[in-house]
Computed example of a mutant assay.
Amino acid sequence: MTEMIARLQQIADRFDHVLLDQYGVLHHGKGVFVEARDCVASLHDRGKTILVLSNSGKRSADNLHRIAKAGLEPALYDGVLSSGEVAWQGLRDRKSVPFTQVGRRCFLVTRGPDRGVVDGLDLELVDLEAADFILLAGLDDGDTDIGAWRERLAAAAARNVPMLCANPDLTMFTDSGLLPAPGALAQFYEGLGGAVSYIGKPHRVIFEAALQALGHPKPERVLMIGDSLDHDILGGRNAGILTLLVTSGVHREALVGSTDITGSLLRLAGSAARMPHWAIDRLVW
C-alpha cells in the first residue's frame, strides 16, 4: 500500500535516477515552487540523475527554456524529455509504430502559432479535410469546447484518419482554472471511432525513450515523481519503476486534508496496481 512521506530525503536511498513531472510538481505554469527548486538542487548535489518528463506537446528545448524562465536553472538537472520531442523524433526517423503508419499530409492542432513540433520535418501542413493524419500537440483555451469539434472530427474518423496525440493530459492549468487538455479531445475522437496513438505518459513510447535517455538503468532504481495517477503513476508502474505522487497537484481537491490518504487514493486509482509506492503533499527535500 502507499506510504505517506513528509520529505523526499526519507526515501532517497531507494533510487539513483528521477523522472520528474513538470506541471503540478515544479510549477503551475508560472514561477517554480521554492521548495521544489531546493529539492531538485539537493537531488543534484547527491548525484541523482534528474530528467524532467513532461506531457508537453512542445519540444524539449522549448520546455527547458520555459522551466529556466520559471526559476529552475538548467545546471540543476540533466535535461528535459517532452512528449512533443518524442513525437518529433518519431516522425523524423519513421522507424517504429505508430510513426511508420502515417503519411506526410498533416493537420496540426497546437497552441497559437507554435509550429516547433513539426519544424524541419518532411510534412505538408494541410486542412483536416485533406489530411493523412492529425497531430494533436496543444489546445488554445478557446478550442477546449470539445463538443464543438464533433462535426469535423466525425468526418475525419469516417475517413479513417489516424491521430497522434503528443499531449495525453486530460486537463490543463490555465488562468481560468482547469480546462480540457489535448488528451480529452483525443479521447473524444476515439469515441467517434477515430484511431489514436498516444505519445506521452502513461504510454510505453515515452517511458522507453526516458529510460534510454537515462542510459538504460535498472527500472527499480528509477523514481517517477508526478501529480497524476492516470499519467505519472500508471505509466511508472507499467514501466516497472518506483512512483511518488504529489497530492497537491491535479488531485488536490480529493486528497488534500484527507484523514485516510490510502483510502482516498484507492478510490481514485480504482485498483492497487495503479497506486503509487509513496505519496507526498508537495515536493520537499
Rank of each mutant, 00 (worst) to 15 (best):
M1K: 13
T2G: 03
E3V: 15
I5C: 03
L8V: 14
I11D: 07
I11W: 07
R14F: 01
Y23R: 15
Y23F: 15
G29V: 11
G29M: 11
G31L: 02
F33G: 04
E35S: 15
A36G: 07
R37M: 04
D38G: 05
C39S: 15
V40L: 11
L43Y: 09
L43C: 13
H44A: 15
D45W: 13
R46N: 15
G47C: 12
G47I: 14
I50S: 06
L51N: 02
N55Y: 11
S60G: 11
D62H: 11
L64P: 00
L64D: 05
L64R: 14
A70F: 00
G71A: 04
L72S: 02
E73H: 14
D78I: 03
G79H: 07
G79P: 07
A87M: 12
W88A: 01
G90W: 02
R92Y: 09
S96Q: 14
V97H: 08
V102Y: 00
G103R: 11
F107T: 04
F107K: 04
R111P: 00
R111M: 07
G112R: 07
P113N: 06
V117A: 03
V118H: 01
V118W: 03
L121K: 09
L123F: 04
L125C: 04
L128I: 15
A131H: 11
A137W: 03
G138H: 02
D140M: 08
D141W: 00
G142A: 13
A148D: 14
A148P: 01
W149I: 12
E151P: 00
A155N: 08
A157E: 07
R159W: 02
N160C: 13
L164W: 03
L164G: 02
L164R: 03
A166L: 05
A166N: 05
M172G: 01
T174L: 06
D175L: 10
S176C: 08
A184E: 06
F188T: 04
Y189V: 06
Y189E: 02
G191E: 10
V196T: 07
P202T: 14
F207T: 03
E208G: 01
A210F: 04
L211M: 14
Q212V: 07
A213R: 14
L214F: 05
H216A: 13
H216W: 13
P217G: 10
K218S: 13
R221K: 15
L223P: 03
L223A: 02
M224H: 01
M224T: 00
G226K: 08
L229R: 08
D230C: 07
R237T: 09
I241C: 01
L242Y: 04
T247R: 11
S248R: 10
G249H: 05
G249V: 07
E253Q: 14
V256W: 01
S264A: 15
A269Y: 10
A269C: 10
M275D: 11
H277E: 12
A279D: 10
I280P: 05
D281M: 08
D281A: 11
R282T: 13
L283W: 09
